[in-house]
Design a protein around this nucleic acid. Structure first.
Lengths: 141, 141
DNA sequence: GTAGATGCAAATTTTTTGCATTTAG
DNA sequence: CTAAATGCAAAAAATTTGCATCTAC
């Protein structure tokens, strides 16, 4: 598991400075199995004694997004959620009642992108998939 | 094409009043092949002489969402986009450069929801899929 | 030392809400 | 007539920006 080092390198490799805040954002996203909002990240940084301002968090996320290190997802009503781009990308199942997220195995889009590219003439760069439902706990209520 | 009547009925059928603003929102969403933001809808209502306040548009969309007449998608940076729920649901291909949207045929999730349900014990209620890429026009530049 | 990163406060943008007024049923 | 819908203005929530200060390189 040298992911952490890899990601820090990705930031510095692109000519950006490897600051504590950036390392913290990368590490927090790495250890999150589910998408996080900017505020989630901000709070986790604070808790772990690596406080940065919320605007810094937004700026780091913007930088990472531009460099394809994170993807922006929207889930919890009008709040942007961010996920680290990993080699094996994931999709999530979200309970519409309690907002719990569960990672799904596999990607049903695999192999389909080339078909879409041929049909539409677009260069396909990625996709976002979320599945919604009611989790067993919420159903019981 | 009696979609319009159908949708108006859906609103009134649920015990809600069939107002001009509501009919206008339904009609505008019907004629849109792509997701629209609340403001898009607000502007189209104004253009077509059926002005309503932006807050009314938001309230109508909220009502429709709660009654599963529209789905909320987020695409254009931090702006909620709304799509009318139709029997044959659609997914979209979005140019990350100019934000153009193109509807895709077919749904690769068809049939997959029952597998996910079995594996996770969730009741699956829906999903959202967006594919990203660069359109031919933007690629040329 | 210097360009780039950060913090803070203020500005913008998007969405929601309170309340008086209007309207569909 | 009456509950529900709307408009308006103000509030709240989320994100971005300007500028002075700090820090990685």
């Amino acid at each position: 598991m040298t992911k952490k080092v890899d990601n820090e390198n990705i930031i510095s490799r692109q000519g950006y400075r490897n600051t504590k805040s950036r390392a913290a954002v990368v590490e927090i996203l790495e250890n999150a199995e589910i998408p996080l909002s900017a505020e989630d990240i901000y709070l986790r940084m604070k808790e772990s004694g690596r406080s940065a301002s919320l605007s810094t968090v937004y700026r780091i996320l913007e930088l990472m997004e531009n460099n394809r290190l994170v993807e922006r997802t929207s889930v919890n009503n009008n709040k942007a959620m961010f996920t680290l781009v990993r080699s094996g990308h994931k999709h999530h199942l979200i309970c519409t009642s309690c907002h719990k997220m569960v990672a799904l195995g596999g990607c049903p889009l695999k192999g389909l992108e080339s078909d879409i590219s041929r049909e539409t003439q677009f260069d396909i760069t990625g996709h976002r998939l979320e599945v919604y439902g009611i989790c067993p706990e919420c159903r019981k209520r």
